[in-house]
Design a protein around this nucleic acid. Structure first.
Lengths: 403, 403
DNA sequence: TCATTTTGATTTCATTACGCAATCAAAGTC
DNA sequence: GACTTTGATTGCGTAATGAAATCAAAATGA
């Protein structure tokens, strides 16, 4: 136990460095309360381990010896975040500071079987990262379904059935050859937005992903709330309406299409509904389209309220295909929400767009790597502290990769 | 930092003792991994501080020196849990092992103003505990409203408006003269059931309190989920139904009475609705009563589902006045829930009955006292480890107090 | 009955890692 | 060029630990 204290201090020093991020020994000593002597010794160790390096001297117009800035050795390893959607797959690779080095978007070959899809995914990840694949320390995978973290099984993924096959994750991890984390796509999208996007200013946030399915991610004090069976967030299952229809039948793409068909309304795509019904008074009153839209609106306010009272997020981030059609209406929903609940969360759109999930994968993978380096668990929710992963940096890397 | 390690070990030893609870030095050494020498030294300190005492020797048919059992000094201080309901107030006082020493039930003088009610409450608590009041270390108070833990303010308490007045808590704490914790009554009831009642076998549970209001408490891994403004659990605000009515208008006492009146059904009390409409086919089909009951059932399944997907509890405990009328119907709701959601939580009734809230107050107060003694925060969710606070022990003390 | 065995608690002692303070290092200032 | 200032490093005494030896208290059995 007496030698444990050294390990403890090493963790504390590393954690503080990660949070301040470039920092001098002195700063770390001051903010941790650990003596300068011990900080020096811990940093020596961390440098010897190749985890930390001296960057450059601070340039300040001050007397005295220059302080030396320390930082994490970003190139030490890479992580990869993958968002396997029903139609598109996005992959982002980044270094230990979440600086993106790879960003690709591919159509998901949803016709493949479980094992084939797994192999395809592994192949795409490897070829995207290229020569530096050997440096990859972890891959995090977002799936359009409920992921049981205990059993490591996937369920309720109607839009990409094959990932429910236990072989999928097994083959995938085997083919990748590195630790693979799996999670619900809304959880990862929230993690992405939480660190780099619309929710970066608050640790209490939720993500509502509206597209082919309805997914919800909830963050409490920066940590994603995961049920034992990954059921948390399945708000689409809530029965609403007199007939006991599920909420998702009013708000998801397939649900809307089915309802339109039942009402005899021709609808090419869910997006058309939002164009047609427009803002307040588009379309004739009482037309089937207006009715569909009104049902959608009511269901949306219901989910939003349910999310609000279940974890009291400061912000609810809307993402997914359908959310794109709602950007202009956010203010209206916000108003209705404020009428419904006293302290309503703020509604915003996903800033990282289609890449929130993959970006969240990077974050989630980084967290496991940080833990192995000795960063304190409790500090993870504020890490990585970086502003390198932004919509523009992703877009830049993405465009670079295309040519 | 080097002397901190001693404090660290002291905490670890005390925490382990609390979890094993009567335990010998050797057991503690083994389960903490701390050397026997250090455990002895830490225990010496704890005994000197009057926190721990040697109880008796273990009686085992074994050779060798007898091990000495250690335990917390239960009489060191008392805590009090108060559940201030709109109609009844319950008070339980217990020692550091949650052994109840006082249990009373009083009609709430709801006609009093904020300050008067506070004084009345303090007076009742003091007189219930009697001569040992000076030993009271903390009081925890459950209120029928949302309690903001940051601002320490109460809101949304329509059934006992005066507690929203900032003066209420201030006067109350002042009059009590000991630290006062305030929380939502459903949260405390959950805490009570979680440690001593229907949810004692799982750390993932929720409480649905149905009575004059609708309150929900959520526990994640044994810890009560509290939003910053205490809004978590206000599931009654969720709009359901085509007219956007709030969920609570279908399920709370006042809501049911209002709906009955609107439908022209004479209803003496909410309980009558459940007698009248009975199980599956009581009353004539399509009668207003049947309709009311059907609306209630649908709303109930909606809340239950919303609770289930928001935190994935293993058990949902039903408490409050209306829940008493539902005891016989739990199986039916359970079935409907299982049809709605894949892995449905188990529905149970509150085992501590009307005293869950006060019992939870005892737990919550104990937690703060434990923290001051040096118990590790993370261990609190499994403490106190005791089986002294039971429905029967409460009832026994309660009856003793009456004569 | 008394040495022996067994098991729990305590004490002894070498080791470890810390923090304080002195010292060294590297800059600007006068 | 001596002085001052500020950051990093090193020497040293102290505190707390763990392993092992010792003590304590019980049952066993010749």
């Amino acid at each position: 136990m007496v030698q444990d204290i050294r390990e403890l201090n090493r963790s504390a020093v590393l954690t503080e460095l990660m949070s301040l991020r470039p920092a001098t020994r002195k700063q770390i000593a001051e903010s941790t309360g650990i003596s300068a002597a011990t900080v020096t010794r811990a940093i020596d160790q961390l440098i010897a381990d190749g985890i930390v390096c001296e960057v450059s001297e601070v340039v300040v117009e001050k007397r005295g010896r220059r302080a030396i800035l320390l930082d994490l050795v970003a190139e030490r390893s890479l992580v990869v975040g993958v968002d396997l959607g029903a139609s598109s797959t996005r992959i982002i690779g980044g270094d230990l500071l979440a600086n993106p080095v790879v960003a690709v978007e591919l159509p998901t070959p949803s016709e493949l079987g479980a094992a084939e899809l797994a192999l395809w995914l592994a192949q795409q990840a490897k070829s995207a990262v290229g020569a530096r694949w050997s440096a990859v320390a972890a891959v995090s995978l977002g799936l359009p379904g409920a992921v049981d973290q205990v059993e490591r099984s996937v369920s309720n993924a109607p839009n990409l059935k094959q990932v429910e096959d236990p072989a999928f994750l097994a083959v995938c991890e085997l083919a990748l050859g590195v630790p693979l984390l799996a999670d619900n796509d809304a959880n990862l999208a929230l993690l992405g937005e939480l660190r780099f996007g619309a929710a970066r200013h608050t640790p209490y946030a939720a993500m509502l992903s509206l597209g082919a399915g309805l997914g919800v991610g909830i963050a409490i004090d920066g940590a994603i709330l995961r049920g034992r069976h990954g059921l948390v967030g399945e708000f689409g299952q809530i029965p609403v309406g007199a007939l006991g229809e599920r909420l998702e039948s009013f708000t998801t793409g397939p649900g809307l299409m089915a309802r339109a068909a039942a009402a005899g309304v021709p609808l090419e795509s869910p997006a058309r509904l939002f164009e047609a019904s427009g803002g307040e008074g588009g379309g004739s009153a009482d037309s089937p389209t207006t009715q569909l839209r009104a049902d959608f609106d009511r269901a949306l306010v219901t989910v939003l309220t349910a999310i609000a009272v279940s974890s009291e997020p400061e912000t609810i981030v809307l993402g997914g295909g359908i959310a794109k059609s709602l950007v202009g209406d956010l203010g209206r929903y916000q108003e209705r929400l404020e009428q419904t609940i006293r302290i309503a969360p703020t509604l915003t759109s996903a800033e990282l767009g289609d890449f929130s999930g993959a970006a969240g994968g990077v974050v989630s993978a980084l967290h496991t790597v940080y833990l192995t380096l000795g960063v304190e668990q409790a500090a993870l929710s504020a890490l990585p502290k970086t502003d390198l992963l932004t919509p523009t940096s992703i877009r830049r890397i993405f465009n670079q990769m295309i040519e």
